[in-house]
């Protein structure tokens, strides 16, 4: 193997480089400490707390798996899970199809493409709570004509959240798709055209396989965003309408997982904080698992250019 020659900068001199290489951990240390403080420690602490009963984290008492049993027995949690799963699946499909479509149209060299890109991307820059309140005004402005509001029916809440989510996310995913589409080699498209492929065939057999890496990342982002949705949910419906069951329990029909965890943790007395924590761990495992499966599935379809 040919040794790399000194290109003139003294930093690359072996005399200087070797001691630096030997002391690599000193350079890694700041980042590593930050990673530990910001991620590893809170994560392990959170895991531990899910097995405890506590009011503040310094007063935690170990109680075993009781929190997990309570969390899994909680009907509102199961309802929130299925509601969230349904929401995530539908939003993944709609966001990606629409974002791809918009990206495809905007790479066709139409007039004002840059203006459109900017305009479509803008909703992403607005915070979730603000969006939730703005859209709640829009929806209720329309629904009040029919003497109802978004809080009255589960389906209004569901599709309201969906519209909000699409409006916010499509622009973001569109940018990623545009980058992907622009990196598809011209030669491949040209070759396909010479071979007599029409637009549709080119799209299916050449373009899409080549933007598979963008699809992977967009699917990943929209799926995890769907599962983690919180601010918009809180601001738009806060779980309403409720169903009041005969055993006295109530189900918040539009409450998603993250909001359910928040309500368990802060809405109830400290007895439920451990349960909230256990739900959060279950939530993490679920989201991690689902996104790993999704990554595997789409990665395997990616092609090397």
């Amino acid at each position: 193997m040919k040794k790399k020659t000194n290109d003139g900068t003294s930093v690359n001199s072996p005399l200087l480089r070797r001691p630096i290489q030997r002391m690599f951990f000193v350079f890694l240390l700041p980042t590593f400490i930050a990673f530990c403080i910001g991620f590893v420690y809170p994560f392990l602490q959170g895991m531990y707390l899910s097995f405890c009963s506590f009011t503040t984290i310094s007063s935690a008492k170990f109680i075993g798996i009781g929190n997990y049993i309570k969390a899994l027995e909680d009907a509102t949690f199961t309802h929130a899970f299925w509601f969230t799963a349904l929401f995530a699946v539908i939003s993944v499909v709609l966001i990606n199809v629409l974002a791809f479509l918009v990206a495809y149209l905007l790479t066709l060299k139409i007039k004002g493409a840059n203006l459109f890109r900017t305009a479509f991307f803008m909703p992403n820059l607005i915070g979730g709570i603000v969006l939730g309140y703005i859209w709640s005004m829009i929806f209720n402005g329309i629904l009040s004509k029919y003497q109802t509001s978004i809080l009255m029916e589960t389906k209004y809440g569901f599709w309201g959240l969906m519209i909000l989510m699409l409006w916010q996310q499509i622009g973001y995913m569109m940018i990623i798709y545009i980058a992907g589409l622009q990196s598809v080699p011209e030669e491949l498209i040209e070759a396909a055209r010479i071979d007599g492929a029409n637009r549709w065939q080119t799209l299916i057999h050449v373009t899409i396989p080549n933007v598979m890496s963008s699809i992977t990342i967009c699917m990943f982002l929209s799926l995890t965003n769907g599962f983690k949705l919180f601010d918009q949910n809180l601001a738009l419906t806060a779980g309403q309408p409720f169903i009041f069951q005969d055993d006295g329990s109530q189900i918040k029909t539009t409450e998603m997982l993250a909001l359910n965890i928040y309500n368990t943790f802060y809405g109830q007395s400290s007895a439920a904080r451990g349960t909230g924590q256990a739900k959060a761990v279950i939530f993490f495992v679920l989201v991690a698992l689902i996104s790993v499966i999704q990554l595997r599935a789409t990665r395997s379809k990616e092609v090397q250019q």
């Binding site: 003497q147 109802t148 509001s149 809080l151 009255m152 806060a238 779980g239 309403q240 309408p241 409720f242 009041f244 109530q250 918040k252 309500n263 802060y266 809405g267 109830q268 007395s269």
Partner: peptide, 21 residues
């Protein structure tokens, strides 16, 4: 009121339904 925030959220949701008919 026990778990006052949760209890009130339920009452508010039910009263909203009642107001809407």
């Amino acid at each position: 009121t026990p778990n006052v925030d949760e209890w009130r959220a339920g009452v508010v949701a039910a009263m909203n339904q009642y107001d809407a008919g």
